[in-house]
Amino acid sequence: MKKLYWLMSLSVIYLWIMPNSAEAQLPFDEIMMNKGEVCAALLYEHGSWNQYWEGNNLRGNANIGTLTRQMVMPMVVVGISEKLNIIASLPYVSTDPSGGTQVGQRGIQDLSLSLKVEWLQKRLGKGNLILLSNTNFNTPLGNYLSDYLPFSVGLGAPEIGMRGIAGYRMDNGLVFRTAFAYLWRGQTEIERNFYYQDGGVYSNFMNVPNAVNFHAAVGYWTLDNQLRLEGTFMSLNCVSGDDIRAYNAPQPTNKMNISQVGFWGQYYIKGRKGLGAIAYCNYTVNGRNVGKASNLGVGLTYQFQAFAKK
């Protein structure tokens, strides 16, 4: 049991903050794997922006042009029990600006481990009410430089997140879901020992602000539960941090806020087991100190029984 506690505490979510990060992932939905089931997924995401918010001011910058961000992310979800799932993912990210003279980056970003627990499943009216939690831990792998925004591949800080999820799945296939998370972020190590954040700071560490994350979706299951379609809304707001200074580069200490609307589709080709396909897109409707990104993602999933139910 002790081991499990440590695992719980060492678990997490995906790094939301990155302006272009994949928005729709399993850690916050209401779906659980059965015991012994494993779902392996490979996702590709393409995001880009040509405008960003400097503080609250939306602007372009010809010396960045359009910043394209691509991500390949393997992910595994394991059904430890029907009430307990483990999710792990590790994205590889590349960035490429079309303008200016600075070079884009590529590299392995942050390992994410998360533990999803179903606390309640209850018949309510013409559907089921489901309450879940997701505890997340993630940590940068590799040696990417976080202090190279907007071109860096991540924020370079560890993170612990606690998320509560409430879903209502109706018998007619409609799904309503909302999730709320608080994300504790640590520090990112940078390669200089003085920087400016509302004054001089003599340190080679930057504090990455904590954030709150809200997620809502309306979904519909159809074709004998083989197709799942969802409209999504996601917002992430840092609880502290500074603004990008005039015509200056962003830095990991910034108060990054973002709101996105999106669409998500998942198709299980032959029912629950076997191959599936995912496609999603999302669009940034508002933000602060982030790019106004549009993202498109596609992925393949493969679900199978890895070990016995009993």
Binding site: Y5, L10, G186, V201, Y202, S203
Partner: peptide, 19 residues
């Protein structure tokens, strides 16, 4: 355990002095 882990997390933070 959770509280312990969080405090460990926080105590790992380096100082960011202004002078």
């Amino acid at each position: 355990v959770i509280i312990l882990v969080f405090s460990l997390f926080i105590s790992c933070l380096e100082e960011t002095p202004r002078y």
